[in-house]
Amino acid sequence: MSQPLSAHRFPLTLALLTVLVTLFMLTPMALSMTAGLVNNYSRGLASGLTTRWLEQVWEGYGDTLFWSLVIASSCAVITTVVGVPCAYALARSRSRGARLFEELLTLPVAVPGLATGLALILVYGQFRYFRQSFLFILVGHIVFTLPFVVRTVGSAFANRELISLEEAARTLGAGFAHRLLGVLIPAVMPAIVASALMVFTLSVGEFNLTWMLHTPLTRTLPVGLADSYASMRIEVGSAYTLIFFIVVLPLLWGLQVIANEVQKRYGT
């Protein structure tokens, strides 16, 4: 870092842009937080503060929060259990098929969630009970997030040092189970935690896909949000957004702290 030098390079322009961008990013957050607490949005703070919008949201949409968290945690667990072995197999395979498969793994970023949702409905839509359960949304989320796990953990497995470490363990006569528990898993632990966290975050916020898959009885948090924006007073929508901030953000932040701890402990 060369503070005195670069600080005088584009001082004003950069600082001004940063302030502008910060304002642009913060104003809506502040607006939505206050709008959920006032009696009447168009009259502003003068109409007094209230928690009745929050209560209304809690009654009408409280279950969406619960289901979102359930789906996100199950999704994180399942994608980890399925994705880690897949990642290992891919990282150790030298076949052309494996490379092609890796290319396919970038698809969920490129293919809009809308299309994935469409595909799932077209294929599985006729199984009525499946279609009407939260399982359907969970499957959608798994399809969407699994590639992230395989990619993140796969690149950790592909680390050259780890490959030679594993070779060394094998030369010394360690069986696969021994190598797995003693060498591989500890080495890729940070990647596993990071990817599980990413899956959780993606799943909680997922809308594109979920909106296609949801039914009036199976709604997640973002689906409920969209519903309240479309059909309720602006205060209710804001209160709902506030609940998202209060519940989900500290949770994500706490998970991030845990992930960083793991990173410190296992990271090299």
């Binding site: 607006l31 939505s32 909680v204 924006y229 602006i234 998202f244």
Partner: peptide, 29 residues
Amino acid sequence: LLSVLTLPLSFPGVIIGFFMILLGGRQGL
């Protein structure tokens, strides 16, 4: 500041749409 600025990464798209309504909608700022 950096963590606040990167906070919206975890917002669902619908919330950002709603933010725009609060900013530039009929009852907006």
